[in-house]
Design a protein around this nucleic acid. Structure first.
Lengths: 202, 202
DNA sequence: CGTGAAATTGAGCTCCCTCAATCTGAGTGG
DNA sequence: CCACTCAGATTGAGGGAGCTCAATTTCACG
Protein backbone atom coordinates (compact mmCIF):
# COMPACT_ATOMS: atom_id res chain seq x y z
CA UNK A 1 0.00 0.00 0.00
CA UNK A 2 1.36 3.41 -0.99
CA UNK A 3 0.65 6.05 1.63
CA UNK A 4 0.95 9.79 1.96
CA UNK A 5 0.22 10.84 -1.60
CA UNK A 6 -0.95 14.41 -2.14
CA UNK A 7 -3.25 16.09 -4.63
CA UNK A 8 -4.04 19.81 -5.06
CA UNK A 9 -7.62 21.07 -5.36
CA UNK A 10 -9.10 20.36 -8.78
CA UNK A 11 -6.64 17.63 -9.75
CA UNK A 12 -7.91 14.20 -10.78
CA UNK A 13 -7.25 11.18 -8.62
CA UNK A 14 -8.77 8.85 -11.20
CA UNK A 15 -9.33 9.44 -14.91
CA UNK A 16 -12.43 7.88 -16.42
CA UNK A 17 -11.63 5.24 -19.02
CA UNK A 18 -8.10 4.45 -17.86
CA UNK A 19 -7.19 0.90 -16.95
CA UNK A 20 -8.14 -0.05 -13.41
CA UNK A 21 -4.98 -0.95 -11.51
CA UNK A 22 -5.61 0.17 -7.95
CA UNK A 23 -8.11 1.16 -5.27
CA UNK A 24 -7.76 4.43 -3.39
CA UNK A 25 -8.58 5.56 0.12
CA UNK A 26 -8.94 9.26 0.85
CA UNK A 27 -7.06 10.21 4.04
CA UNK A 28 -7.88 13.89 4.31
CA UNK A 29 -9.70 16.34 2.09
CA UNK A 30 -12.50 15.24 -0.23
CA UNK A 31 -13.28 14.43 -3.84
CA UNK A 32 -16.18 14.20 -6.24
CA UNK A 33 -16.96 11.30 -8.54
CA UNK A 34 -18.47 12.36 -11.83
CA UNK A 35 -18.88 11.53 -15.48
CA UNK A 36 -19.13 13.90 -18.43
CA UNK A 37 -21.67 13.07 -21.10
CA UNK A 38 -21.06 13.67 -24.79
CA UNK A 39 -23.08 16.87 -24.59
CA UNK A 40 -20.63 18.16 -22.01
CA UNK A 41 -22.94 18.06 -19.01
CA UNK A 42 -21.53 16.74 -15.78
CA UNK A 43 -23.26 13.98 -13.84
CA UNK A 44 -22.06 13.90 -10.25
CA UNK A 45 -22.18 10.35 -8.91
CA UNK A 46 -21.15 11.16 -5.38
CA UNK A 47 -18.56 12.57 -3.03
CA UNK A 48 -15.68 10.87 -1.25
CA UNK A 49 -14.97 11.79 2.38
CA UNK A 50 -11.91 10.97 4.49
CA UNK A 51 -11.66 7.26 5.22
CA UNK A 52 -13.76 6.26 2.25
CA UNK A 53 -12.67 4.05 -0.61
CA UNK A 54 -12.97 4.83 -4.29
CA UNK A 55 -12.39 2.96 -7.52
CA UNK A 56 -14.68 -0.01 -6.91
CA UNK A 57 -16.84 0.68 -10.00
CA UNK A 58 -13.79 -0.18 -12.06
CA UNK A 59 -14.29 -3.90 -11.37
CA UNK A 60 -17.14 -3.84 -13.88
CA UNK A 61 -14.96 -3.55 -16.96
CA UNK A 62 -11.33 -3.30 -15.80
CA UNK A 63 -11.55 0.42 -16.51
CA UNK A 64 -12.53 3.23 -14.21
CA UNK A 65 -16.08 4.29 -15.00
CA UNK A 66 -15.87 7.83 -13.73
CA UNK A 67 -13.56 10.72 -13.05
CA UNK A 68 -12.60 11.40 -9.44
CA UNK A 69 -11.29 14.90 -8.71
CA UNK A 70 -10.11 16.48 -5.46
CA UNK A 71 -12.37 19.26 -4.18
CA UNK A 72 -9.64 20.62 -1.92
CA UNK A 73 -6.03 19.69 -1.15
CA UNK A 74 -6.34 15.96 -0.55
CA UNK A 75 -4.10 13.15 0.65
CA UNK A 76 -4.76 9.53 -0.12
CA UNK A 77 -3.43 5.97 -0.19
CA UNK A 78 -3.10 3.83 -3.25
CA UNK A 79 -3.68 0.07 -3.12
CA UNK A 80 -2.37 -1.60 -6.29
CA UNK A 81 -4.41 -4.57 -7.48
CA UNK A 82 -1.18 -6.50 -8.05
CA UNK A 83 -0.69 -6.47 -4.28
CA UNK A 84 -4.35 -6.98 -3.45
CA UNK A 85 -4.94 -10.06 -5.61
CA UNK A 86 -2.50 -12.46 -3.87
CA UNK A 87 -3.85 -11.33 -0.50
CA UNK A 88 -7.40 -12.10 -1.65
CA UNK A 89 -6.33 -15.68 -2.27
CA UNK A 90 -4.82 -16.12 1.17
CA UNK A 91 -7.06 -14.14 3.46
CA UNK A 92 -10.72 -15.12 3.56
CA UNK A 93 -11.35 -12.21 5.93
CA UNK A 94 -10.07 -9.72 3.38
CA UNK A 95 -12.16 -11.41 0.68
CA UNK A 96 -15.26 -10.91 2.78
CA UNK A 97 -14.26 -7.33 3.53
CA UNK A 98 -13.89 -6.43 -0.14
CA UNK A 99 -17.22 -8.07 -0.90
CA UNK A 100 -18.76 -6.17 1.99
CA UNK A 101 -17.39 -2.86 0.71
CA UNK A 102 -18.75 -3.52 -2.76
CA UNK A 103 -22.07 -4.62 -1.34
CA UNK A 104 -22.26 -1.48 0.76
CA UNK A 105 -21.53 0.76 -2.20
CA UNK A 106 -24.19 -1.07 -4.20
CA UNK A 107 -26.74 -0.92 -1.42
CA UNK A 108 -26.11 2.76 -0.80
CA UNK A 109 -26.45 3.57 -4.46
CA UNK A 110 -29.72 1.65 -4.76
CA UNK A 111 -31.11 3.23 -1.63
CA UNK A 112 -30.13 6.73 -2.70
CA UNK A 113 -31.64 6.30 -6.12
CA UNK A 114 -34.92 5.08 -4.71
CA UNK A 115 -35.03 7.93 -2.26
CA UNK A 116 -34.29 10.57 -4.86
CA UNK A 117 -37.22 9.33 -6.85
CA UNK A 118 -39.58 9.66 -3.94
CA UNK A 119 -38.49 12.92 -2.31
CA UNK A 120 -39.21 16.48 -3.34
CA UNK A 121 -36.37 18.98 -3.66
CA UNK A 122 -36.17 19.93 0.02
CA UNK A 123 -36.31 16.31 1.06
CA UNK A 124 -33.38 15.51 -1.20
CA UNK A 125 -31.24 18.32 0.19
CA UNK A 126 -32.21 17.36 3.74
CA UNK A 127 -31.32 13.76 3.04
CA UNK A 128 -28.02 14.81 1.48
CA UNK A 129 -27.06 16.81 4.57
CA UNK A 130 -28.15 14.05 6.92
CA UNK A 131 -26.12 11.52 4.95
CA UNK A 132 -23.06 13.76 4.96
CA UNK A 133 -23.45 14.28 8.70
CA UNK A 134 -23.70 10.54 9.30
CA UNK A 135 -20.60 9.77 7.25
CA UNK A 136 -18.57 12.50 8.93
CA UNK A 137 -19.54 11.15 12.33
CA UNK A 138 -18.53 7.64 11.26
CA UNK A 139 -14.97 8.93 10.75
CA UNK A 140 -14.84 10.86 13.99
CA UNK A 141 -15.47 14.30 12.50
CA UNK A 142 -18.09 16.73 13.75
CA UNK A 143 -21.55 15.71 12.49
CA UNK A 144 -23.08 19.13 13.14
CA UNK A 145 -20.43 21.59 11.98
CA UNK A 146 -18.67 21.13 8.68
CA UNK A 147 -17.62 22.79 5.47
CA UNK A 148 -19.23 21.83 2.17
CA UNK A 149 -16.21 21.31 -0.05
CA UNK A 150 -18.44 21.01 -3.11
CA UNK A 151 -20.27 23.84 -4.85
CA UNK A 152 -24.06 24.23 -4.91
CA UNK A 153 -23.92 23.20 -8.53
CA UNK A 154 -22.15 19.95 -7.63
CA UNK A 155 -24.80 19.20 -5.02
CA UNK A 156 -27.52 20.03 -7.52
CA UNK A 157 -26.10 17.79 -10.23
CA UNK A 158 -25.74 15.04 -7.64
CA UNK A 159 -29.37 15.30 -6.52
CA UNK A 160 -30.95 15.92 -9.92
CA UNK A 161 -31.89 19.53 -9.13
CA UNK A 162 -30.74 22.99 -10.15
CA UNK A 163 -28.32 25.00 -8.06
CA UNK A 164 -31.00 27.63 -7.44
CA UNK A 165 -33.30 25.02 -5.95
CA UNK A 166 -30.52 23.76 -3.67
CA UNK A 167 -29.86 27.30 -2.54
CA UNK A 168 -33.57 27.87 -1.86
CA UNK A 169 -33.82 24.65 0.13
CA UNK A 170 -30.91 25.74 2.31
CA UNK A 171 -32.58 29.12 2.72
CA UNK A 172 -35.81 27.46 3.81
CA UNK A 173 -33.99 25.32 6.39
CA UNK A 174 -32.16 28.37 7.68
CA UNK A 175 -35.41 30.31 8.06
CA UNK A 176 -36.93 27.32 9.87
CA UNK A 177 -34.07 27.42 12.34
CA UNK A 178 -32.87 23.94 11.39
CA UNK A 179 -29.36 25.03 10.46
CA UNK A 180 -27.05 27.95 9.88
CA UNK A 181 -25.43 28.64 6.53
CA UNK A 182 -22.49 30.93 6.05
CA UNK A 183 -21.18 30.47 2.55
CA UNK A 184 -19.99 26.86 2.53
CA UNK A 185 -19.97 26.44 6.29
CA UNK A 186 -22.91 24.54 7.72
CA UNK A 187 -24.03 24.21 11.32
CA UNK A 188 -26.86 21.77 11.94
CA UNK A 189 -29.13 22.98 14.74
CA UNK A 190 -31.88 20.39 14.47
CA UNK A 191 -30.42 17.33 12.69
CA UNK A 192 -33.44 15.23 13.63
CA UNK A 193 -35.70 17.60 11.66
CA UNK A 194 -33.59 17.09 8.54
CA UNK A 195 -33.42 13.33 9.04
CA UNK A 196 -37.19 13.01 9.42
CA UNK A 197 -37.74 15.12 6.29
CA UNK A 198 -35.49 12.86 4.26
CA UNK A 199 -37.30 9.78 5.51
CA UNK A 200 -40.75 10.14 4.14
CA UNK A 201 -42.03 10.20 0.57
CA UNK A 202 -42.97 13.36 -1.27
CA UNK B 1 -25.63 -25.25 -7.12
CA UNK B 2 -29.30 -26.11 -6.74
CA UNK B 3 -31.17 -25.98 -10.02
CA UNK B 4 -34.73 -26.15 -11.23
CA UNK B 5 -36.49 -24.42 -8.37
CA UNK B 6 -39.90 -22.96 -9.05
CA UNK B 7 -41.84 -20.00 -7.73
CA UNK B 8 -45.44 -18.93 -8.50
CA UNK B 9 -46.28 -15.33 -9.43
CA UNK B 10 -46.22 -13.03 -6.45
CA UNK B 11 -44.12 -15.27 -4.21
CA UNK B 12 -40.92 -13.95 -2.70
CA UNK B 13 -37.55 -15.35 -3.75
CA UNK B 14 -35.75 -13.30 -1.13
CA UNK B 15 -37.13 -11.74 2.03
CA UNK B 16 -35.61 -8.41 3.09
CA UNK B 17 -33.79 -8.65 6.42
CA UNK B 18 -33.18 -12.39 6.42
CA UNK B 19 -29.64 -13.72 6.69
CA UNK B 20 -27.78 -13.83 3.42
CA UNK B 21 -26.83 -17.40 2.64
CA UNK B 22 -27.00 -17.68 -1.13
CA UNK B 23 -27.01 -15.97 -4.50
CA UNK B 24 -29.75 -16.64 -7.01
CA UNK B 25 -29.92 -16.74 -10.80
CA UNK B 26 -33.28 -16.40 -12.52
CA UNK B 27 -33.67 -19.02 -15.27
CA UNK B 28 -37.07 -18.09 -16.68
CA UNK B 29 -39.72 -15.62 -15.68
CA UNK B 30 -38.88 -12.36 -13.94
CA UNK B 31 -38.85 -10.68 -10.56
CA UNK B 32 -38.84 -7.25 -8.99
CA UNK B 33 -36.50 -6.03 -6.28
CA UNK B 34 -38.11 -3.62 -3.86
CA UNK B 35 -38.11 -2.26 -0.34
CA UNK B 36 -41.07 -1.13 1.74
CA UNK B 37 -40.60 2.02 3.79
CA UNK B 38 -42.12 2.42 7.25
CA UNK B 39 -44.92 4.49 5.74
CA UNK B 40 -45.83 1.50 3.60
CA UNK B 41 -44.76 2.92 0.26
CA UNK B 42 -42.88 0.63 -2.07
CA UNK B 43 -39.55 1.62 -3.61
CA UNK B 44 -38.78 -0.52 -6.64
CA UNK B 45 -35.03 -0.96 -7.02
CA UNK B 46 -35.11 -2.88 -10.24
CA UNK B 47 -36.23 -5.91 -12.18
CA UNK B 48 -34.52 -9.25 -12.68
CA UNK B 49 -34.63 -10.88 -16.10
CA UNK B 50 -33.72 -14.45 -17.10
CA UNK B 51 -29.99 -15.09 -16.76
CA UNK B 52 -29.47 -12.30 -14.26
CA UNK B 53 -28.15 -12.68 -10.76
CA UNK B 54 -29.74 -11.36 -7.58
CA UNK B 55 -28.77 -11.15 -3.94
CA UNK B 56 -25.49 -9.25 -4.29
CA UNK B 57 -26.63 -6.32 -2.12
CA UNK B 58 -26.65 -8.76 0.78
CA UNK B 59 -22.86 -8.64 0.98
CA UNK B 60 -23.18 -5.22 2.61
CA UNK B 61 -24.45 -6.47 5.95
CA UNK B 62 -24.84 -10.25 5.70
CA UNK B 63 -28.56 -9.66 5.35
CA UNK B 64 -30.59 -9.18 2.21
CA UNK B 65 -31.37 -5.49 1.79
CA UNK B 66 -34.51 -5.83 -0.27
CA UNK B 67 -37.39 -8.09 -1.07
CA UNK B 68 -37.33 -9.96 -4.38
CA UNK B 69 -40.69 -11.22 -5.65
CA UNK B 70 -41.59 -13.14 -8.78
CA UNK B 71 -43.70 -11.19 -11.27
CA UNK B 72 -44.80 -14.34 -13.02
CA UNK B 73 -44.16 -18.08 -12.61
CA UNK B 74 -40.39 -18.14 -12.30
CA UNK B 75 -37.67 -20.78 -12.14
CA UNK B 76 -34.27 -20.15 -10.63
CA UNK B 77 -31.02 -21.60 -9.33
CA UNK B 78 -29.71 -21.17 -5.83
CA UNK B 79 -25.98 -20.86 -5.13
CA UNK B 80 -25.29 -21.36 -1.42
CA UNK B 81 -22.46 -19.24 -0.03
CA UNK B 82 -21.10 -22.29 1.79
CA UNK B 83 -20.30 -23.76 -1.62
CA UNK B 84 -19.18 -20.48 -3.15
CA UNK B 85 -16.65 -19.50 -0.46
CA UNK B 86 -14.21 -22.42 -0.88
CA UNK B 87 -14.33 -21.97 -4.65
CA UNK B 88 -13.45 -18.29 -4.22
CA UNK B 89 -10.28 -19.33 -2.44
CA UNK B 90 -9.19 -21.73 -5.16
CA UNK B 91 -10.29 -20.07 -8.38
CA UNK B 92 -8.89 -16.61 -9.09
CA UNK B 93 -11.03 -16.48 -12.23
CA UNK B 94 -14.20 -16.92 -10.19
CA UNK B 95 -13.00 -14.27 -7.75
CA UNK B 96 -12.59 -11.82 -10.58
CA UNK B 97 -15.96 -12.80 -11.98
CA UNK B 98 -17.77 -12.13 -8.71
CA UNK B 99 -15.99 -8.80 -8.38
CA UNK B 100 -16.94 -8.00 -11.96
CA UNK B 101 -20.59 -8.80 -11.31
CA UNK B 102 -20.64 -6.60 -8.23
CA UNK B 103 -18.84 -3.84 -10.08
CA UNK B 104 -21.32 -4.07 -12.93
CA UNK B 105 -24.28 -3.85 -10.57
CA UNK B 106 -22.70 -0.85 -8.88
CA UNK B 107 -21.84 0.86 -12.14
CA UNK B 108 -25.32 0.28 -13.54
CA UNK B 109 -26.96 1.65 -10.44
CA UNK B 110 -24.78 4.77 -10.46
CA UNK B 111 -25.37 5.33 -14.14
CA UNK B 112 -29.11 4.84 -13.84
CA UNK B 113 -29.36 7.23 -10.93
CA UNK B 114 -27.44 9.93 -12.72
CA UNK B 115 -29.58 9.49 -15.80
CA UNK B 116 -32.84 9.64 -13.89
CA UNK B 117 -31.80 12.94 -12.43
CA UNK B 118 -31.14 14.41 -15.84
CA UNK B 119 -34.04 13.08 -17.93
CA UNK B 120 -37.61 14.21 -18.08
CA UNK B 121 -40.45 11.70 -17.69
CA UNK B 122 -40.53 10.55 -21.32
CA UNK B 123 -36.77 10.22 -21.39
CA UNK B 124 -36.89 7.96 -18.36
CA UNK B 125 -39.54 5.68 -19.83
CA UNK B 126 -37.67 5.59 -23.14
CA UNK B 127 -34.44 4.75 -21.35
CA UNK B 128 -36.22 2.05 -19.34
CA UNK B 129 -37.55 0.40 -22.48
CA UNK B 130 -34.20 0.66 -24.25
CA UNK B 131 -32.46 -0.89 -21.26
CA UNK B 132 -35.00 -3.71 -21.06
CA UNK B 133 -34.58 -4.34 -24.78
CA UNK B 134 -30.79 -4.45 -24.46
CA UNK B 135 -30.91 -6.90 -21.57
CA UNK B 136 -33.39 -9.18 -23.31
CA UNK B 137 -31.18 -9.25 -26.38
CA UNK B 138 -28.16 -10.12 -24.22
CA UNK B 139 -29.96 -13.32 -23.18
CA UNK B 140 -31.07 -14.24 -26.68
CA UNK B 141 -34.67 -13.04 -26.34
CA UNK B 142 -36.41 -10.72 -28.77
CA UNK B 143 -35.32 -7.12 -28.21
CA UNK B 144 -38.28 -5.65 -30.08
CA UNK B 145 -41.23 -7.76 -28.97
CA UNK B 146 -41.77 -8.54 -25.32
CA UNK B 147 -44.22 -8.59 -22.47
CA UNK B 148 -43.88 -6.19 -19.55
CA UNK B 149 -44.26 -8.51 -16.60
CA UNK B 150 -44.41 -5.55 -14.21
CA UNK B 151 -47.34 -3.17 -13.76
CA UNK B 152 -47.28 0.49 -14.77
CA UNK B 153 -47.14 1.29 -11.07
CA UNK B 154 -44.00 -0.82 -10.65
CA UNK B 155 -42.34 0.98 -13.56
CA UNK B 156 -43.39 4.33 -12.13
CA UNK B 157 -42.04 3.57 -8.67
CA UNK B 158 -38.83 2.37 -10.30
CA UNK B 159 -38.40 5.57 -12.32
CA UNK B 160 -39.60 8.04 -9.71
CA UNK B 161 -42.79 8.88 -11.60
CA UNK B 162 -46.52 8.25 -11.23
CA UNK B 163 -48.26 5.48 -13.10
CA UNK B 164 -50.34 8.04 -15.00
CA UNK B 165 -47.19 9.70 -16.32
CA UNK B 166 -45.78 6.34 -17.43
CA UNK B 167 -49.02 5.60 -19.22
CA UNK B 168 -48.98 8.99 -20.91
CA UNK B 169 -45.37 8.54 -22.02
CA UNK B 170 -46.25 5.20 -23.62
CA UNK B 171 -49.23 6.87 -25.28
CA UNK B 172 -46.99 9.58 -26.70
CA UNK B 173 -44.53 7.01 -28.09
CA UNK B 174 -47.40 5.07 -29.62
CA UNK B 175 -48.80 8.19 -31.28
CA UNK B 176 -45.32 9.00 -32.59
CA UNK B 177 -45.17 5.57 -34.21
CA UNK B 178 -42.17 4.49 -32.15
CA UNK B 179 -43.85 1.43 -30.67
CA UNK B 180 -47.07 -0.49 -30.29
CA UNK B 181 -48.71 -1.07 -26.93
CA UNK B 182 -51.35 -3.66 -26.34
CA UNK B 183 -51.87 -3.96 -22.60
CA UNK B 184 -48.56 -5.29 -21.38
CA UNK B 185 -47.28 -6.38 -24.76
CA UNK B 186 -44.77 -4.02 -26.36
CA UNK B 187 -43.50 -3.96 -29.92
CA UNK B 188 -40.66 -1.55 -30.59
CA UNK B 189 -40.91 -0.07 -34.08
CA UNK B 190 -38.14 2.52 -33.86
CA UNK B 191 -35.79 1.42 -31.06
CA UNK B 192 -33.17 3.96 -32.15
CA UNK B 193 -35.62 6.80 -31.48
CA UNK B 194 -36.13 5.60 -27.91
CA UNK B 195 -32.41 5.10 -27.37
CA UNK B 196 -31.56 8.57 -28.56
CA UNK B 197 -34.24 10.09 -26.37
CA UNK B 198 -32.81 8.36 -23.31
CA UNK B 199 -29.33 9.55 -24.10
CA UNK B 200 -29.53 13.31 -23.79
CA UNK B 201 -30.20 15.50 -20.80
CA UNK B 202 -33.53 17.11 -19.99
C1' DC C 1 -69.73 -13.90 -19.95
C1' DG C 2 -69.17 -11.20 -15.54
C1' DT C 3 -66.29 -9.04 -12.19
C1' DG C 4 -62.52 -6.44 -10.32
C1' DA C 5 -58.08 -4.80 -10.96
C1' DA C 6 -55.15 -2.37 -14.10
C1' DA C 7 -54.67 1.09 -17.56
C1' DT C 8 -56.04 5.12 -20.05
C1' DT C 9 -57.60 9.76 -20.35
C1' DG C 10 -58.91 14.40 -18.68
C1' DA C 11 -58.70 18.87 -15.84
C1' DG C 12 -56.63 21.75 -12.42
C1' DC C 13 -52.85 22.94 -9.64
C1' DT C 14 -48.31 22.75 -7.43
C1' DC C 15 -43.52 22.66 -7.53
C1' DC C 16 -39.43 23.19 -9.73
C1' DC C 17 -36.92 24.91 -13.75
C1' DT C 18 -35.58 28.92 -16.58
C1' DC C 19 -34.00 33.42 -17.04
C1' DA C 20 -32.22 37.39 -14.88
C1' DA C 21 -30.57 40.61 -11.41
C1' DT C 22 -28.25 41.28 -7.16
C1' DC C 23 -25.28 40.07 -3.44
C1' DT C 24 -21.46 37.90 -1.00
C1' DG C 25 -16.86 36.49 -0.33
C1' DA C 26 -12.19 34.94 -1.44
C1' DG C 27 -8.07 36.22 -3.73
C1' DT C 28 -5.14 40.01 -5.95
C1' DG C 29 -2.52 43.99 -6.68
C1' DG C 30 -1.94 48.88 -5.73
C1' DC D 1 -4.82 48.04 4.41
C1' DC D 2 -8.21 48.58 1.11
C1' DA D 3 -10.43 48.85 -3.35
C1' DC D 4 -11.02 45.74 -7.16
C1' DT D 5 -12.57 41.67 -9.46
C1' DC D 6 -14.94 37.71 -10.59
C1' DA D 7 -16.82 33.35 -9.59
C1' DG D 8 -20.17 31.45 -6.67
C1' DA D 9 -24.41 32.08 -4.14
C1' DT D 10 -28.82 34.22 -3.26
C1' DT D 11 -33.21 36.03 -4.50
C1' DG D 12 -37.14 37.15 -7.60
C1' DA D 13 -40.68 36.54 -11.44
C1' DG D 14 -42.85 33.69 -14.79
C1' DG D 15 -43.94 29.46 -17.18
C1' DG D 16 -44.25 24.45 -17.98
C1' DA D 17 -43.84 19.54 -16.72
C1' DG D 18 -45.67 16.23 -13.92
C1' DC D 19 -48.61 15.22 -9.74
C1' DT D 20 -53.37 14.79 -7.76
C1' DC D 21 -57.96 13.69 -8.11
C1' DA D 22 -61.50 11.59 -10.76
C1' DA D 23 -64.05 9.25 -14.58
C1' DT D 24 -63.96 5.76 -18.12
C1' DT D 25 -62.22 1.95 -20.60
C1' DT D 26 -59.65 -2.26 -21.20
C1' DC D 27 -57.97 -6.49 -19.85
C1' DA D 28 -57.23 -10.84 -17.13
C1' DC D 29 -59.23 -14.46 -14.70
C1' DG D 30 -62.72 -17.26 -12.95
Amino acid sequence: MERGRQLPAGASLIHAGTRMDALYVVRSGSAKRYAVSMSGTERVHGFVLPGEIVGLEGFASDRYACEVAALEPTSYCRIPLTRLEPLLEQLSGLRREVLRLLGEALDESLRLRAELGMCDARGRVARFLADLSRRLELRGLSPTQFRLSMSRGDIARHLGLTLETVSRALGTFKRSGWLEVRARYITLLRPEALASMGGYAS
